Amino acid sequence: MRTLVENVMTTDVAAVNQNASFHTVAELLISRGVSGLPVLDDDNHVLGVVSEADLLAKEEFKERYYGDDYRPPLRARIRHTAGSEGSGYRKSLGETAGALMTSPAHTTAPDAAIVTAARLMDRHGVKRLPVVDADGRLVGIVSRRDLIKVFLRLDKDIEQQVRDALHGKAEVTVTDAVVTLTGTYAERSQAVTAIRLAENIDGVVAVHDTLDWKHDDIADLPIWGGA
């Protein structure tokens, strides 16, 4: 059985309403020891995510204009608003979570496989994903650390799951989550399938094999195409 997001996510989520003040957001980030918060509407729908980086945009633009009391001229403000730095400049003026957040949020579902969540994080360069139900309401949050937990499975549990997946047709040993397969299959394709099944078990770091086969049915397959 594949591990799902709901099996590893945190349900006690630190989140803020879109109308929460800058100060409230900063205070919650510090008190909960997190670097980002889902931003919600009044019906618990996820609108975006506000992070430490979003808050720091205010200090970044203060520093850029050499002092808290200095307000850049209209031409400079228009240039930053319209240019590539426009988003950061707009955030520097924000006073609420809704104005500061990055939107839309990248989210996942409770019944998504953890590998799907990991790919989303990698694709979008984020460290966590709000978990939402079918209506887009927040039900949890999953972080990179949560996904790594799957690699802490006991060797004996991984070994049993691999044995079950292979129906006892290969010898299985597991050390530090590395699976070793030995044995002989009737067909080469069966050995290849066994390796793939073992690799797909949650928590498996690598698969080493010395599998053999009596008949190379893969080599017997016709080669299509050609001149």
Rank of each mutant, 00 (worst) to 15 (best):
E187L: 15
L211P: 06
V34D: 07
T107P: 05
V174W: 01
A206S: 15
L166R: 07
S31R: 15
G67P: 06
E199H: 05
V25G: 03
V139M: 05
D176R: 15
L29M: 02
K62S: 15
G33L: 01
G140H: 00
D202N: 06
V150Y: 00
D157Q: 09
N19A: 11
G83N: 02
L28Y: 03
G225R: 10
G94K: 05
G125F: 05
P72G: 08
V115Q: 08
D217L: 06
T175S: 12
A15L: 07
M121H: 02
G226C: 14
L166T: 06
T210G: 12
T24P: 00
G94T: 03
P130N: 10
V16G: 01
A186D: 09
H23V: 15
S35G: 15
L152G: 15
I195D: 05
F22A: 06
D41Q: 00
D68M: 11
G33C: 00
M1G: 14
I223F: 06
S103T: 09
G136T: 15
D12Y: 10
V46L: 04
K149S: 12
W224M: 10
P130R: 03
V192P: 01
G140K: 12
L120V: 15
S35L: 07
E171Y: 08
T210D: 13
P110A: 09
A219S: 11
V16W: 04
R144I: 04
A191M: 01
L197N: 09
M1R: 09
D54H: 00
E59H: 09
L55A: 05
T180W: 00
S103R: 02
P73C: 12
T11S: 11
T3R: 10
I78T: 12
T11P: 12
K169A: 08
R75T: 13
E27G: 10
A105W: 07
D212G: 15
T108I: 07
P38T: 02
Y89F: 14
E52I: 10
L47V: 01
R137H: 10
L4Y: 12
P130F: 01
E27R: 14
V207Q: 02
P73W: 11
D202V: 05
A113E: 09
R71F: 12
R32P: 07
T210P: 01
G83Y: 02
L56F: 13
K149H: 06
E199F: 06
I195N: 00
G226V: 15
L197M: 04
D176L: 09
E6I: 14
T184D: 00
H124I: 10
H215I: 12
E199L: 15
P73F: 10
V25W: 04
T182H: 13
G33S: 01
D111Y: 09
R188V: 12
M1H: 11
Y70G: 06
T193V: 11
M121K: 03
D122Q: 13
V172S: 03
T116F: 11
V174N: 06
Q190D: 01
Y89A: 08
E59F: 14
A219M: 08
D216N: 12
G67T: 01
A82Q: 11
S103M: 00
V179C: 08
D42C: 09
G33M: 04
G86P: 03
S51D: 04
K91W: 03
S143K: 02
S21Y: 02
L120I: 14
S189K: 10
F61P: 12
T193N: 04
L147Y: 00
A198T: 07
T175K: 13
V132E: 04
A191V: 06
